[in-house]
């Protein structure tokens, strides 16, 4: 590699970092000047602390959100690419279309939604297996604990694109290891790529493999912070293992698990990589909402329609999360 190319990255990145720093300093100084000197507001320090992050987030997320809202009220597609028309009627039409016409070529919104729910429900598999492994690792006096933990955490540490592509090639009918193993024990191979049901299962298997370590680590943290005295007291009362699990472990783990499961649900619902790389957008029967959105926007270039579609997905997930928060109190520890 030649030195000039090497310096390009270094020069550009350090330049950008420098200018971001200058920009943030300017913001800080002006907040300080206005808040402390002019308004004499007691929350000036707070504003100085939170503003940089939220200015950045605003730039990265709020502008795109506004853009999508505007786009949702247009008829933009390949036929109206250069000069799309914006009108209320176009917007209504786009939103109506999400529910009345196929969102892709043959699947309509409701089946994709139900499939997405089914797909998202795997978070409970992540959580239960994660919890189980954590409980095994947390047994007193367990040997090789660190070795086990280091290995079990690997799927999380691997770059996701690499894992996804590896799994995809392992679902090859002739040369993938699941089928080779099946053949060796005398069973016929499974058509992971062509069969709709097995294809979906392949996606779930991959994502379960990827998702367990996060839940395991979270659970382990929770378990370690439960004081041993609880269990000792229960032992003295002669409680069985199951009773202890039900009455001590679960209730105390709830504040740890509830927010993590919520994050897990959001991430899985929005998981693009795994369905995209395993199914390669071949079978419509394997699409979940976000991959269907990607296809509508990029394969079929239905810009206006897919903006409306995206907003609906976002609103749906947002309201679902609020219901979950109300129901489990997952944010209680966070907001107080």
């Amino acid at each position: 590699m030649n030195s000039q190319v090497v310096l390009t990255a270094l020069g550009q990145v350090s330049g950008t970092v420098f200018w971001m720093f200058v920009g943030f300093m300017l913001i800080e100084v002006s907040i300080w000047a206005v808040g402390n000197k002019v308004l004499k507001n007691k929350n000036t320090l707070v504003a100085m602390l939170v503003t940089p992050a939220f200015v950045g987030l605003g730039l990265l997320l709020v502008f795109p959100l506004i853009y999508e809202v505007v786009l949702a009220f247009s008829n933009m597609n390949l036929y109206h690419f250069r000069n799309p028309e914006f009108s209320l009627l176009n917007g209504l039409d786009n939103f109506k279309r999400v529910f009345t016409k196929p969102v892709l070529q043959s699947t309509t919104f409701v089946p994709v939604l139900l499939r997405t729910f089914l797909w998202t429900s795997q978070v409970f598999i992540h959580a239960s297996f994660g919890m189980l492994l954590a409980m095994l690792l947390n047994r007193p006096g367990l040997k090789f604990k660190n070795v086990y933990r280091a290995i079990l955490i690997l799927p999380w540490a691997m770059p996701q694109v690499i894992s996804a592509l590896t799994w995809r090639s392992e679902f090859n009918f002739e040369y993938g290891f699941p089928n080779i193993l099946l053949n060796r024990i005398g069973l016929p191979g499974i058509q992971w790529k062509a069969d709709a049901v097995w294809n979906f299962i392949a996606m779930v298997l991959t994502n379960v493999w990827l998702g367990i370590p996060f839940m395991m680590v979270i659970s382990l943290g929770g378990l370690q912070s439960i004081s041993a005295e609880f269990y000792e007291a229960a032992d003295m009362d002669g409680a069985s293992g199951w009773t202890k699990f039900q009455n001590i472990t679960l209730p105390l783990m709830k504040p740890v698990l509830a927010p993590s499961v919520m994050l897990g649900i959001i991430w899985t619902f929005n998981n693009f990589n795994i369905p995209y790389f395993i199914n390669e957008m071949k079978l419509e029967s394997s699409e979940i909402l976000v991959t269907a959105l990607f296809r509508a926007a990029f394969n079929f270039s239905q810009y206006g329609f897919s903006a409306a579609f995206a907003l609906i997905i976002f609103a749906l997930l947002f309201s679902m999360t609020l219901v979950y928060v109300k129901w489990t109190g997952a944010l209680k520890g966070v907001t107080d």
Binding site: N77, L78, Y79, K101, P102, L104, Q105, A296, F300, F305
Partner: peptide, 8 residues
């Protein structure tokens, strides 16, 4: 047919 209708 659906796909073509969607493009428009």
């Amino acid at each position: 047919v659906n796909g073509i209708a969607n493009l428009k």
